[in-house]
Simulated assay, not measured.
Amino acid sequence: MRTLFVDISTLAYDFKNRYNKTISHEFANCADVQLTALFELKTGIKINKQISIATRPEWEFFTEIGEVSKVAFSIYINHNWNNITVLWKSKSGRVYRLEDTDIDCNDIEFWFDGLDVALIYQQMYPNVKLPFKLKDLSYELIVARINMDCTMQIQLKPEYLSDVESIMGEIDDFIAAFNENSEKKGRTHGVIHNWKPRTESGKLIYDIDLGSTGPYFFKKLLPHLSSMNYFTTVELC
């Protein structure tokens, strides 16, 4: 299985050669496991030969060590290089450094800052809007973008305009159930942090913070909306 840190030995060499810094194999291994899973969850894209993490030019490098630490990386996406920052902290309060070898992978937690999911889709799939396929939807699907914060605009069929409150409640119940099921499975697919529904000119509008989930949520929600059969268009923007 491919991972985000394709070759840790080369990465360690680059740190020493470019920055005169040491990144231990133990530190990098823990980061690799967590960040690979997080990238795939956030983007819905499996790591492949067109995706990897690498060092930045030396003039762009930075690292900060503290309660929340950070280090600069690049992420390679289909012949594009995007700046990304990797952050980490510990549950125990210990401050881990890049060069540490006695790493407790259950204590240290890694995440990204600057992971532009919409840009990654555009770079990986220039002519495709979603990283999964949907068939025979009962409405027209329009995808402008999917980012961590996005808006879903749902146009109701005229005959269901008077049922807007109950329909909104059904969608809310689906999102709540998605979170509950993911929680029961150890947040395997993440959870939606916040969603705010409102109505406007015959449309249901949802402002959604995808939180720790990603496109997997829409892979489940969009077929559910189709099965409801109340809508003419659904737009993600």
Rank of each mutant, 00 (worst) to 15 (best):
D7H: 03
K16F: 06
N17R: 14
K21C: 06
S24K: 05
S24R: 07
E26C: 05
L35C: 03
T36D: 01
A37I: 01
E40M: 09
L41R: 15
K46T: 10
K46F: 06
I47A: 09
N48W: 00
Q50C: 01
T55F: 03
T55Y: 04
R56M: 15
P57L: 14
W59Y: 14
W59C: 08
T63Q: 15
E67Y: 08
A72F: 01
F73W: 09
S74H: 11
I75M: 04
N78G: 09
W81A: 12
N83P: 00
N83D: 15
V86K: 05
G93A: 12
E99W: 10
T101S: 11
C105Y: 01
I108M: 07
I108K: 05
I108H: 06
F112Q: 05
L115W: 04
A118Y: 02
Q123Y: 10
N127H: 10
V128T: 12
K133A: 12
L134N: 08
L137V: 08
Y139G: 00
I142T: 09
N147Q: 10
N147W: 03
C150V: 14
M152R: 02
I154H: 05
L156N: 08
Y160R: 04
Y160K: 08
S162T: 10
I167Y: 04
G169A: 10
G169W: 00
D172I: 09
D173G: 02
A177K: 10
A177L: 14
A177F: 02
F178Q: 05
N181R: 05
S182H: 04
K185D: 15
G186Q: 11
H189V: 03
H189M: 10
V191H: 06
N194A: 13
E200M: 06
S201Q: 15
D209L: 04
L210R: 05
L210I: 09
S212D: 13
T213V: 08
G214L: 03
L221N: 07
H224W: 08
S226D: 10
S227P: 00
S227F: 02
M228L: 15
T233K: 06
E235H: 06
